[in-house]
């Protein structure tokens, strides 16, 4: 009888510990929201939200500071767009190739190597963008400045190919074989089957892959901090230097910013903007991926 009781207590205690561990993740999210909100709140006490959202200049460290976030957002979106122009077509094509064309053996070899692209430290990619790709690009585009949006954008695009290709490929592989056979039986080629049947069937998953790619690109830091230059710049010209939200946070953190000053608070306002941007994409992505799991 007593043994039964101690067993019950032990089981209960263990379950509680495990539950608390799982709950810790919720606690982390809450902390992120609280910390970002609290510090941004301090920021918005000093800077009106309207100025923050509509101002066209971001110069918080100047003697006469200006706090318009638009240049940082435009920098983030510019580099993200360049990255997506590279990553989406290449990633999707690679996924179609791996899922529908590649012989099994080749796929087993290529897939893990492709995943390595996502494992390379981003600071190494930054080195590569600044010291390898930019000089090469400058040979073709003489106007390209040493720091620019184009080079880190391209490198970032290649960096996120595995995110796009592996989730897309999973979604395509989840399309049941009998749907493909239906298409082949009508005399369709692999290409026709892939684009007219498999991709539409895997649509949610491919969309989720794209969303994950976008979210990665928005949040990526080091490539931009190293190779894009440190100048907030409201421009759509990929040949000019720009600064992203993430790169701004890094730039400020590298200096010695006293706790509690307005400069200190700007990084949280920028962080909050960044967090909200990625949050929207993450939630859409989660919802889309859940849909594929339910589809079959």
């Amino acid at each position: 009888m007593k043994r039964k009781l101690t067993r019950k207590i032990k089981e209960g205690a263990i379950e509680t510990i495990l539950f608390l561990s799982a709950l810790s993740s919720v606690f982390i999210t809450i902390s992120i929201v609280v910390v970002l909100s609290y510090e941004s709140f301090g920021f918005f006490k000093e800077v009106p939200l309207i100025e923050f959202l509509t101002g066209r200049e971001w110069t918080p460290l100047f003697a006469e500071p200006k706090f318009g976030i638009l240049p940082l957002i435009s920098g983030t979106l510019l580099i993200t767009s360049i990255a997506l122009i590279v990553a989406l077509p290449l990633g999707l094509t690679a996924a179609v190739y791996l899922s529908e064309y590649a012989p099994h053996r080749l796929k087993e070899i290529i897939k893990p190597i492709l995943e390595l692209l996502a494992a390379v430290p981003t600071v190494v990619y930054g080195y590569f963008a600044l010291l390898f790709l930019t000089p090469i690009l400058q040979k073709f585009i003489p106007d390209l400045s040493g720091f620019n949006a184009l080079s880190p954008g391209i490198i970032m695009g290649i960096m996120i190919i595995p995110y796009v290709s592996s989730v897309s490929e999973d979604a395509m592989r989840a399309v049941p074989m009998h749907i493909r056979e239906g298409s082949y039986a009508m005399g369709a080629t692999k290409l026709q089957t892939a684009f007219k049947v498999v991709i539409p069937s895997a649509f949610s998953g491919i969309a989720a892959a794209f969303i994950i790619g976008i979210s990665r690109a928005i949040g990526e830091t080091m490539v931009v901090a190293i190779a894009a230059g440190g100048m907030p710049n409201l421009t759509a010209n990929p040949l000019e230097p720009v600064q992203t939200l993430t790169a701004y946070i890094v730039a400020v953190s590298l200096g010695d910013v006293p706790h509690g000053t307005i400069e200190y608070k700007t990084i949280f306002a920028a962080g909050m903007t960044l967090f909200l941007m990625t949050l929207v994409f993450n939630i859409i992505g989660f919802w889309l991926r859940k849909r594929i799991r339910e589809a079959y």
Binding site: I28, S215, E220, G271, F275, T278, I283
Partner: peptide, 28 residues
Amino acid sequence: NIIEINIANLAGVPSIVYGLLALVVFVY
């Protein structure tokens, strides 16, 4: 359900945001 959505979301939070969290919580 909330824990699950939450973990999926955390996996997509930019790494620098964790840095900001750690700065406030652990450093200060």
